[in-house]
């Protein structure tokens, strides 16, 4: 006996080329494979439709799941104009202002947070911000807070991932109704962190080190 597989696919064209045995094509955007968060009934419908494909006797099977949910698109940093009237321009100060909202998010979600890749405690994020600012200005190329297991380039990426998660979670705690598009627009248009990340990505893209250049693509574009 081998393994029987069934699954979900987001890009139907890829399934047509790879030809996996059984695939359900879903009309949602990347990162939203089961359609709607915190909607067990709808998620069960998708999963049961996926498991129903197991009854087929020949393949490849590629079926489409119909839904009226429109994929919600969001902009990357370069697609969002900066607002000139940002309330706070210092990312370090801004970080502190976001902390109560972030901590409330963690409390409300049973301790679950997407922050943690860099291994730096959120209470020390000011040190991370200082390093990133110095890196942008070519004043520092490394930091003693970097764990040895990470290269500088990857440490920077994990720090940026953590900072984005910290900001997004704090904002969702402050305003639970914000849409995906609004959250991304807020980060890039209104926060000092968004501005810092864009400058950081630009600085990394112009670096001589290929790893630093490659990692820049996973930070902002």
């Amino acid at each position: 006996m081998g393994l029987v597989t069934t699954g979900l696919v987001l890009i139907e064209e890829h399934a047509k080329r790879v030809k996996p045995p059984r695939m359900l094509s879903v009309p949602f955007n990347f990162g939203n494979t089961l359609g709607r968060p915190n909607d067990p009934e709808f998620q069960h419908e998708i999963l049961k439709t996926t498991f129903d494909l197991l009854d087929r006797h020949e393949g490849p099977v590629l079926e489409s799941f119909s839904s009226n949910i429109a994929p919600e698109l969001f902009s990357q940093g370069s697609g969002v104009p900066r607002q000139r009237s940002a309330v706070v321009t210092d990312p370090g100060q801004e970080l502190g202002l976001r902390r109560p909202f972030y901590e409330r998010w963690v409390q409300q979600n049973g301790g679950r947070t997407a922050v943690g890749l860099s291994t730096i405690s959120q209470t020390d994020f000011k040190l991370v911000i200082k390093f990133l600012e110095d890196f942008i200005e070519d004043e520092e190329f490394d930091t003693p807070i970097r764990p040895n297991q990470f290269s500088v380039a990857h440490f920077i990426r994990y720090c940026v991932d953590d900072l984005k998660a910290y900001y997004f979670e704090s904002k969702m705690s402050e305003d639970a109704e914000m849409s995906i598009a609004q959250l991304h627009e807020w980060l890039w248009a209104e926060t000092a962190l968004g501005s810092l990340i864009m400058r950081l990505a630009e600085r990394m893209r112009s670096d001589d080190n290929n790893e630093v250049k490659a990692v820049a693509f996973g930070i902002a574009r």
């Binding site: 955007n29 990357q76 997004f168 996973g218």
Partner: peptide, 23 residues
């Protein structure tokens, strides 16, 4: 936690509900 390298997809939905990509 998630360390996917792509920034081509939104992660905030999975912050709200891990089941959205890991049911």
């Amino acid at each position: 936690i998630q360390s996917h390298t792509s920034i081509g997809f939104d992660r905030t939905t999975s912050y709200r509900d891990i089941n959205i990509t890991f049911p």
